[in-house]
Design a protein around this nucleic acid. Sequence first.
DNA 1: TTGCATTTCAAACACTTGTATGAAACTATC
DNA 2: GATAGTTTCATACAAGTGTTTGAAATGCAA
Lengths: 230, 230
Amino acid sequence: MASDHTRSAILAAAERLYADRGFGDVTLRDIVAEANVNLAAVNYHFGSKDELIAELFVTRSLATNRERLNELKAAEEKGGGRAPIEAIMLALVGPTLRGCLGPDREGSTAARFMIRASIESVPPIRRIKNREVDHLRKFIAAMRRSLPGRDDAELYWGLHFALAMSHHTIREKERLTKLSEGQCDLNDVTAIVDRVVAVSVMALTGGEPARKAQARPMAAPYGRLTRQDL
Amino acid sequence: MASDHTRSAILAAAERLYADRGFGDVTLRDIVAEANVNLAAVNYHFGSKDELIAELFVTRSLATNRERLNELKAAEEKGGGRAPIEAIMLALVGPTLRGCLGPDREGSTAARFMIRASIESVPPIRRIKNREVDHLRKFIAAMRRSLPGRDDAELYWGLHFALAMSHHTIREKERLTKLSEGQCDLNDVTAIVDRVVAVSVMALTGGEPARKAQARPMAAPYGRLTRQDL
DNA sequence: TTGCATTTCAAACACTTGTATGAAACTATC
DNA sequence: GATAGTTTCATACAAGTGTTTGAAATGCAA
């Protein structure tokens, strides 16, 4: 197996280039030039371009999913098999948001690659994403335990909206910064996570226990409607 | 100007093919074959492939934006220059959701094209979307009038989340149907619109006046917001 | 009908793409 | 050091891409 040098050089170069310039703009020739390896090496080590992309995505994706499930498990164990809904939503959106946002992650190739994978939608990645359903069902199960008696459709919608906010924030962080002229701080990951979790919980519970002590509440937290500031 | 026959045949064929098979899979040769015109006609009438795509997208996009602004204007006039936040969010997400979802729209090429444009992200379309900021600012202005005194960042986040839910629902309607095993009815557009609006308003107001009489409330609707823990 | 501009057409152009080939260079085992 | 297996390499391949060309057809006014 030699030293895997070529193989990992290709993976690293590909991830970097795809992250920076997108899938549509990067050819195998760009990748092998960046990696200082021969063109044929890609097909030798990965079989095809699509399998290379798939391997890149699967690697990062598995890591995130593992993190999610770990947080979910921890929360359920802490609650004796029934986690508070806030913790479940946090386990769902936290890893992704933390992984892709934040100033420390600016330079992370992995993060930028996953953002790219979220924006563009290339066939090999789409195929993998479609198999992610099982993973999400585990969250539905946890939500069912946390909010017993609730209609299943409500849970699905809640999960769906949570993912919507999380993914859309990652995908459109550039545009939101521009639109808000910097007033939305996309670097304050903790605040963003709290915000997404808060709204997700509100969506599920109808506005009741949405608030926990946290960085920046969505609006007037405990008070009456019109009194808000900051 | 002859009869525009060729030009519009190309537009129609292109929209249909892109809608069905995506931008990545459709070549100019596919389009001209479908339209029964000569290959060179595309460059003659549109200049380039990208300009053809841009024209397709701009046409549909302008229509939606016009609809949005009409609804917004109507709501503000009805309220004497200050529309209720529910109406504003409805004007924001209603046209898009109604345009892309629903059983009657299954066969609509325009709808399927816009869904495709939302899923794939091809350069000419991305360029246009980036100019959409001005349009969104009008909604921010209306929101500012509706919720005076509120921090601007909160308004931006609210708008952002509303678009997140709306777009993600369109983009992932297939997957949500599959995940929920049909329990989420993606054909009941009215209910979906109400749902998105309700959550958007909750996100902006912290969960208080989120409910108006409507199809399917998210969960426990009118519950006075209670102090919560964790 | 003549003349001129617009539109269509078949064909070719220029280039890029991912992939395959087969020989050469390695590496490790005996 | 010979051998077998792996890895690298330059090169070619085959196919597909958007675009251009220049002539032919068409439409329309004078």
